[in-house]
């Protein structure tokens, strides 16, 4: 097991090295002149060239990449001229809001989807099952920025229950969380339903029933535990994806997370900030995914047995 974890971590580091190179390369091609950003439009060509020389912008690609990564490993991700701050503290500051949003939307998605999925599985083929399935289809197809706008119309403009944007009090996270959570909830409902249906057909449940275990206990103790495995996989993937910030949802609610940070930086051609944000986000998403994978092996003895071979 430990060897497996070490192998996965080594692989992750290798992939991240590739990711940093890829992102650095893409952003190197992107328009955006650091010297121009620092000195402003009024600077003369000589001044600009002098600064470019000083910043080492004329060095070959791999020299610049090496220098960037050397700084990165020491926690220096450069300075953002759009936000007038070092990139790392800026990122960490926004990360808080993104994590709160991710947790809140995961909470919303799970509270609703798991009972709905179980209910649908137990009433397979009936009207209630069809309604749940139809809701899941709609939830998966609704673009989340539209869901966000509809929520704003209903809850903040018509009912006046929540603010339509910003992140001042904790209640401001409710609407964005529902927005991000809708599609996740739909997918989780589907996963729960099909997972439960698979388990309900299995032989060991028939055995449990034959022994005289009540149907309630069969569902709660025997079926749900095993149906949880695909659910954990899906929620792990969803949670790791949310660590990357919900770009469109954050834009709709002007939510100060990583998504809005990145979009702002892209629009003002702040390549230093974009590069740092993208590498950190990819790292965070990959690490979360790996953590879930490892956790998952601990939860399910069958998977653990596979890896320790």
């Amino acid at each position: 097991m430990h060897r497996y974890i070490l192998k996965r971590i080594a692989m992750l580091l290798l992939v991240m090295l590739g990711v940093s190179l890829l992102i650095f390369f893409i952003m190197d091609l992107a328009p955006g002149d650091q010297a121009l950003m620092i000195l402003g439009e009024a600077a003369t060509e000589e001044e600009l060239n002098a600064l470019r020389e000083e910043l080492g912008l004329f060095d070959p690609f791999f020299v610049r990449y090496g220098r960037y990564m050397w700084g990165f490993l020491q926690g220096d991700l450069g300075y953002s001229h759009k936000y007038l701050s070092d990139v790392l503290p800026l990122y960490l500051e926004r990360l808080g809001a993104t994590v709160v949003l991710a947790l809140a939307s995961a909470l919303f998605a799970h509270i609703l989807s798991i009972p709905m999925g179980i209910y649908a599985a137990l009433h397979q083929g009936k009207v209630s099952d069809n309604i749940v399935s139809a809701l899941a289809i709609v939830g998966l197809a609704a673009p989340n920025f539209w869901v966000g706008l509809l929520l704003i119309i209903l809850f903040s403009l018509k009912l006046g229950m929540f603010h339509s944007g910003g992140f001042v009090t904790l209640s401001d996270v409710v609407l964005p969380a529902i927005t991000v959570g809708t599609a996740n909830m739909a997918l989780l409902t589907r996963t729960t339903r099909s997972g439960m249906i698979d388990v309900l057909r299995s032989d060991y449940l028939m055995l449990a029933r034959a022994k005289g275990v009540s149907e309630k206990m069969v569902v709660r103790k025997h079926a749900l535990k095993n149906a949880l495995i695909p659910i954990i996989t899906v929620s792990g993937i969803q949670f790791s994806a949310m660590m990357g910030g919900a770009v469109t949802t954050e834009a709709v609610f002007s939510f100060p997370g990583i998504g809005t940070l990145l979009v702002g930086a892209i629009k003002s051609k702040d390549t230093v900030c974009v590069t740092g944000c993208l590498i950190l986000t990819s790292l965070l998403v990959s690490v979360t995914l790996l953590a879930v994978d490892i956790l998952y092996a601990y939860v399910d003895p069958r998977i653990k047995a596979q890896y320790s071979k």
């Binding site: 992939v15 991240m16 590739g18 990711v19 890829l22 992102i23 893409i26 952003m27 091609l29 992107a30 328009p31 955006g32 994806a241 990357g244 770009v247 469109t248 990145l262 979009v263 892209i266 051609k269 390549t271 974009v274 993208l278 986000t281 990819s282 998403v285 990959s286």
Partner: peptide, 17 residues
């Protein structure tokens, strides 16, 4: 490596280029 960068973020970076 390509899959490690979240989809929409990758698309945003590429659009910048």
């Amino acid at each position: 490596i390509f899959a490690a960068v979240p989809g929409i973020l990758m698309a945003i970076a590429m659009v910048a280029v």
